[in-house]
Amino acid sequence: MHILVNGAAHDVCATTLAQALDALGYRRAIVATALNGAFVPTDHRDTTALAEGDALEILAPMQGG
């Protein structure tokens, strides 16, 4: 399935958000997610289905002022 991950095109073999995170190298990473601009809490990732063309944002802690 073709989706956008942090603005870049990816081809992932996953049907849920949780599976996509594993497939993309985020296993056990501390990240927050949003799908098509909407926040998806950690405990909803297993039940959040992905569709062709979805835009996924994966954010992590970073330096900030």
């Binding site: 993309l24 985020y26 990473a29 994966i58 954010l59 992590a60 802690p61 330096q63 900030g64 002022g65």
Partner: peptide
């Protein structure tokens, strides 16, 4: 200490090290 959120790369995972430091 103030912190932020930014895009994380699945390959580099640089945010994980920063969070560990904090």
């Amino acid at each position: 200490v103030t912190v932020s959120l930014r895009r994380e790369s699945g390959g580099q995972r640089s945010g994980q090290g920063f969070w560990s430091l904090i």
